[in-house]
Measured scan of single mutants.
Amino acid sequence: MSIQHFRVALIPFFAAFCLPVFAHPETLVKVKDAEDQLGARVGYIELDLNSGKILESFRPEERFPMMSTFKVLLCGAVLSRVDAGQEQLGRRIHYSQNDLVEYSPVTEKHLTDGMTVRELCSAAITMSDNTAANLLLTTIGGPKELTAFLHNMGDHVTRLDRWEPELNEAIPNDERDTTMPAAMATTLRKLLTGELLTLASRQQLIDWMEADKVAGPLLRSALPAGWFIADKSGAGERGSRGIIAALGPDGKPSRIVVIYTTGSQATMDERNRQIAEIGASLIKHW
């Protein structure tokens, strides 16, 4: 067993022997301040990774656009098919120029040779490549099948209805392509620590998230040296922004954090800054 596999296998073990965790309302004060600064709703939840206990939450059962955070769930569904012998990570998928959609920095470079399922998941999570996500959605049967996968996990809230990039439209009061912070946090925890996926697939999923290259201005910008984070960000229309993450000190994750916002007129930089400040408060009061 590799060191990384050992780390993920012992996530519940280490967490069980940690000192009790206590909620700190100071972080919620910052979440509410972010709402004021952005002029928009902000949803927040913080779960203990081992027990699933909610440590703090704000608007945990209000719907927010998922945006690209759905790509972690998508690759979880792909990995479940791999575990069941219905898919192979090494299978190569070929596609054409007509398949390319807006923001496809990886797939646009491989029109000639195609990409493997493993490479597509890596591109979808680490670079948020939209064509990679659409190609992977095709392998599982489309958005409705991802929703069905989530329902089978016990998540009857999260739903995907459309493809990239239309799913980022974020129309107010439109339930399409949305989740709730509580539902997303619980589902992410199941994917990373539950028995739904094999140990190898859980490790692969967290490795992809740990290698995320496009979430630097968010929670990662607030992390002290030595902290662990595996995350996936999302951005959408109407001032929408979000991030889902597993993080913790001492090089291992111990909490799940989900943050979503929508309806702001603020710039992307300002949305990023507010999420980073929430992260800084979380870490300060850990």
Rank of each mutant, 00 (worst) to 15 (best):
V106I: 14
T138W: 10
Q265T: 12
S68F: 00
R238H: 14
S264C: 10
V117M: 10
A235N: 05
F14A: 11
R202N: 06
S122Q: 15
G239W: 01
T138S: 15
A245F: 03
L100S: 04
E35C: 05
Q86H: 13
F64E: 00
W227M: 03
E270P: 03
S233Q: 01
N272P: 01
Q204C: 13
S2V: 08
A183F: 08
S2Q: 13
Q88Y: 13
V78P: 00
K144P: 10
W163D: 09
T107V: 08
T198G: 12
L135T: 07
L146N: 02
N130I: 01
A15K: 04
T131I: 01
E210T: 10
V29D: 13
A235T: 06
S264M: 05
G154L: 05
S201A: 10
F228W: 05
F17Y: 11
T262G: 05
K53T: 14
I54H: 12
N173H: 12
I11H: 05
N173S: 13
L100G: 03
S128A: 00
S201I: 02
I244M: 08
G114S: 05
F64H: 01
M66Y: 04
Q265P: 11
R92P: 08
Q203P: 02
G90I: 11
W286P: 03
P60F: 09
R118C: 13
K190T: 14
V72D: 00
A235L: 05
V157E: 12
H156K: 15
G39V: 10
G226T: 12
T27S: 07
E270M: 13
M115A: 06
V78T: 07
L111P: 07
K32F: 08
D174A: 05
P65V: 04
D174F: 03
A276H: 14
N173F: 13
A222L: 07
A185Q: 00
A148D: 14
P165A: 07
G239C: 03
A222V: 14
M1L: 07
P12L: 12
K32C: 10
V106K: 07
L19T: 15
T261A: 09
P20V: 03
E175F: 12
V117H: 03
V106L: 14
L120M: 11
L10Q: 06
H94Q: 13
F70N: 05
A40Y: 03
P20Q: 15
N173I: 09
T261Q: 07
G76V: 05
T27A: 06
P20W: 02
D174T: 05
N272D: 09
E277R: 12
S57L: 09
K190W: 09
E102A: 13
D155F: 01
I54F: 11
L137E: 04
A40V: 06
P105M: 06
F14C: 09
R7D: 07
P65W: 01
R7W: 08
C75V: 10
T147R: 11
F58W: 14
Q97S: 14
P217C: 07
S104Q: 02
